[in-house]
Design a protein around this nucleic acid. Structure first.
Lengths: 211, 211
DNA sequence: TATCCCCTCGCATCAAGATGTGATAGCGGT
DNA sequence: ACCGCTATCACATCTTGATGCGAGGGGATA
């Protein structure tokens, strides 16, 4: 089994050294690079093509460019790299920003070195490890609340909305539903009042959002 | 420490019994109910208010109503319950459907009983445990691919699109960007030509689709 | 320099949408 | 029988959007 090429970007010397010692001393890993800032790391990747870690432990809070901001640049230079974010805080915003940018795991720094080691192994096997509390935030993103309420619109109103969202004009909608143009207008009026909006654009967005 | 009230819904007698034996024999848990189908379980919840598990292990593949379909009903009867899905397969569709319905963890049945036990404890502490391969699918949902291809629009055009999609009118867009209404119109015109569309509605849908 | 693309702006016109006032009719519940 | 809700339609008015024609300035490039 070839060792896993590993890189670390972390500004705190204490944490950096403890990671370096623990992971670097493990024959499963080969610590190919350690940097103290995004700028540092990116420059190294650019200058030396041979440095190609397969997993990166990346601090989220860095002086200068933050870890999250740097992810796109890293991915551009080494597309296949798997990124594990390390963080002190567990703010939802940061979590989602990091995941959207392309991170594949998100760990609180409070976890043990063993957990971090296992996370690296897991990620390298194509998995993903999340701290439990972070995972919970992620799943809550999918089901913000048992708010499965289908809009407070009547069946007829929903039909009109569907037509509009399908790109039909009022006229075409009227034809399709076999009613008059003015009736469509009236429905739209009521729909706007109900949804507290006032333009077709907002209607389409609302309708598309909840799908 | 009070034991965690636990329920199990699982049709396979072998898995059900092994869960029952292992978890039921652990003093950390109190196994308040075991059902073989959704229908069974829902009926029990309805008939006996006292049965109020705080964590539910729910098979996804059940005869009759599936586990996913049943989640809304369960949540309606016992809103506070934390649901851990158990599954044989790891299809993205099912995973997301379950999470959207309100499940808070998702486990492959291949994992060990110890892992399942730990997942229950984790969930009860307000966390969430995901099998690594499932977690990976979840994170990929956020960053489908480094497919950051911004449409064939110029930077300026994209700014206008963003405004429109944000619900602004041409007038408001013009004000926000500090240009004239006519200029916005001109941009829109070009954007429509480029994207081969001819209405604000289509623009919004296109823009929203690729996000 | 000549050329091309992009951003900017103006005017004009017609279509589409937003909004108000009002009216008729059916259906279900009190 | 009366009330409330929904669906239907009409007319009027004003705003917004779609589109065509034209034009000047700036930057990049051949």
């Amino acid at each position: 089994m070839k060792p896993i090429a590993l890189a670390i970007v972390e500004d705190d010397p204490i944490i950096r050294d403890s990671l370096r010692t623990f992971l670097g001393g493990d024959p499963q890993f080969e610590l190919v690079h350690t940097a103290v800032s995004m700028e540092d790391f990116l420059q190294t990747l650019q200058q030396d093509e041979r440095i190609s870690p397969s997993v990166l432990l990346l601090d989220i809070q860095l002086p200068g460019q933050s870890g999250i901001e740097g992810i796109p640049s890293i991915k551009k230079l080494r597309p296949g790299i798997d990124i594990i974010m390390l963080t002190t805080f567990e703010e939802s915003d940061k979590i989602f920003a990091a995941l959207c940018a392309g991170a594949c795991s998100y760990l609180s720094k409070r976890v043990s070195l063993v957990t971090i080691r296992d996370a690296v192994l897991t990620v390298h096997r194509g998995g993903s490890y999340m701290s439990p509390s972070i995972a919970r935030k992620v799943v809550e993103h999918f089901a913000p609340v048992p708010k499965k309420e289908d809009g407070p619109l009547t069946a007829r109103q929903q039909e009109i909305v569907d037509c509009i969202v399908d790109g039909l004009s009022y006229k075409m909608t009227a034809d399709k539903l076999g009613i008059s143009l003015d009736t469509v207008r009236t429905h739209i009026k009521h729909i706007y009042q109900t949804l507290e909006i006032n333009s077709k654009g907002e209607l389409i967005r609302k309708a598309l959002d909840k799908k």
